[in-house]
Nucleic acid binder design. Structure first.
Ligand SMILES: [Zn+2]
Ligand SMILES: [Zn+2]
Ligand SMILES: [Zn+2]
Ligand SMILES: [Zn+2]
Lengths: 140, 140
DNA sequence: CTTGATCCTCCAGTCGCTGGAGAATGTACG
DNA sequence: CGTACATTCTCCAGCGACTGGAGGATCAAG
């Protein structure tokens, strides 16, 4: 029955100690048992749960989505529709972020490319920023 | 000499009133003159400056970079090197964000595609989240 | 027994806004 | 001139997802 200190959990899951406490405070991690001197003690299930959370965060899922995914993961008999819907929504979100960034990249690239390394007075970077009419696309 | 109320400035520049006050508080906009009853009064230069700020924000520049860009724009005789460096740095930032998002897209797409709409027990979405070893790439 | 590592709680800061409370003006209409 | 409504003022709290510091308690090793 190996129990872990918060420091050991932190190392095993690759999550900083204040972040672990933060996850507990927002209800992502259940409050663990405590020693007589009030220190948190974790078990192997907590490591799995925290790794799940960290991995989902690395993949860009928001905390609220992770909360729902954890609820589903806790109940393996259910249909996985809801989980897949969350993942698809996240995918759509990523794709829209990519599109936006690609549009920005085009604008900023053009600014940079057209600069002739002269005075600020005639610098294309400053000109474009001062007037959206110089942009390639109507909307950003 | 037409002076503008904060509401008129807000309309002309497309920036909300609390945001204008916020920009003033962080030193992006200079404190404007005031009426006898303490209301802010703006001129045409303020409209240009605020439009510049808003456009730079839309293009993703951070406030700190905008502060530097404004300082440069105020001094048109200087070489534009610094402005271009800021723009290039921003471009590099956008590009790295795009790369990261494309990696995430690949992972999440794979999760979604491999789901067979069964039980949570065997759902690929949940499996991948629980174990990074299922991921396509080592690092996210 | 002392030192240094680890842990506890609480609170403030990050970034770029956004919005609400409560009070003071400004403007328009009758 | 009064009244109603719109606009503005300042101050402060909240978003999301942490991060880190202060100040104090406790643990493990020599
Ligand atoms: Zn230039
Ligand atoms: Zn533009
Ligand atoms: Zn599934
Ligand atoms: Zn992974």
């Amino acid at each position: 029955m190996s129990t872990l200190t918060i420091g050991a959990l932190s190392t095993q899951a690759g999550v900083k100690i204040p972040t672990i406490r933060y996850y507990e405070s927002i209800g992502l991690l259940r409050p663990p048992s405590r020693t007589d001197s009030n220190r948190r003690t974790y078990d192997a299930a907590a490591v799995r749960r925290l790794r799940f959370i960290r991995h989902a965060r690395e993949l860009g899922f928001e905390v609220d989505a992770i909360r729902q995914l954890l609820t589903l993961a806790d109940d393996p008999g259910q249909p996985c529709e809801a989980a897949d819907a969350l993942a698809r929504a996240h995918l759509a979100d990523i794709e829209s972020k990519i599109r936006r960034l690609q549009a920005l990249r085009a604008e900023v690239r053009q600014m940079v490319d057209q600069c002739e390394q002269g005075e600020v007075r005639s610098c294309h970077v400053i000109e474009v920023l001062a007037d959206h009419a110089h942009c390639l696309h109507e909307h950003h």
